[in-house]
Simulated scan of single mutants.
Amino acid sequence: MRIASQFWMDEIGSVSPFATVLLMTILLLGLLPGVVTLRDQIVQEFGDVAVAIESFDQSYSYSFNGVTSEYIDSSSISDPVNEAPAGLDLTISATSE
């Protein structure tokens, strides 16, 4: 019981509240830009997926007993570098009343 009491009263490894607050502040300031960057990259990836889905070529052509059936998919989309993702509309249009 005496050893447990000594261990409970021991303050050799204690940390000051100021050091704890300082450490948490530094961690929070480092975490915020990381979360913002993660959000931006997720939005960009969703835009890239939208471009990939929209650029699927669904053209086909087949012949059966001399009859030809075909469909030519002519839609195209581009996603320039350093621009907003092509699959997402990030603008708010002004309306007049």
Rank of each mutant, 00 (worst) to 15 (best):
E45P: 00
I72R: 10
N65Q: 12
S55M: 07
G87E: 03
P85F: 01
E70R: 09
E83P: 01
F56C: 03
D73V: 04
S93H: 06
Y71M: 01
L23Q: 03
Y71L: 03
F46V: 08
L29V: 12
S63W: 03
A50M: 15
G66H: 00
D57Y: 04
V35F: 13
S59Y: 01
I92G: 12
S75A: 06
V51H: 14
S69Q: 11
L27R: 04
M24W: 00
D73H: 07
Q44M: 06
M24G: 00
I92V: 15
I72E: 10
G34E: 04
P33E: 02
V67G: 01
V49P: 02
I42S: 10
D40Y: 03
D79C: 03
D48N: 15
V36R: 06
E70S: 15
A84S: 14
S75C: 00
I42Q: 13
E70I: 00
G66I: 00
M24H: 00
T91W: 07
A84G: 11
S74I: 09
L22G: 02
T20D: 02
E45A: 12
E54F: 13
L27D: 03
T25N: 05
T20S: 07
F64R: 14
V43K: 11
L28E: 00
F64T: 10
Y71S: 05
L29S: 09
F64M: 13
L38T: 14
N82L: 14
T37H: 07
E54P: 02
G47A: 06
F56I: 09
E83Q: 14
A50N: 15
A50I: 14
Q44V: 02
I26N: 01
D40G: 04
T37Y: 08
L28K: 02
G66K: 00
S69A: 10
I77H: 15
A86E: 01
F46R: 07
N65F: 12
I42L: 14
S76P: 02
L29C: 11
D57A: 04
F64N: 13
A86H: 01
Q58Y: 10
S69V: 13
I26D: 01
A19N: 12
V81K: 12
G47T: 05
V81R: 10
A19P: 01
V49G: 06
V51I: 10
L23I: 03
V67F: 08
Y62E: 13
T91G: 05
D48E: 14
V81S: 12
Q58T: 13
I92Y: 11
D57N: 15
A52F: 13
L38W: 14
L22N: 05
Q44H: 05
N65G: 07
A84V: 12
L27I: 11
D89F: 15
F46M: 07
I53S: 08
V21H: 00
D40V: 05
P80D: 13
G34R: 03
E45Q: 11
A84M: 13
G30Q: 05
L38A: 15
D73N: 10
P33M: 02
D40L: 09
Q44P: 01
V51L: 15
I26G: 01
V81E: 12
Q58G: 14
V51D: 11
I26V: 11
S74P: 02
F46I: 09
G66Q: 00
A86G: 04
Y62F: 15
T91I: 08
G34C: 07
T20Y: 06
F64C: 08
G47Y: 04
R39P: 02
Q41W: 11
V35H: 09
D89M: 14
S69T: 13
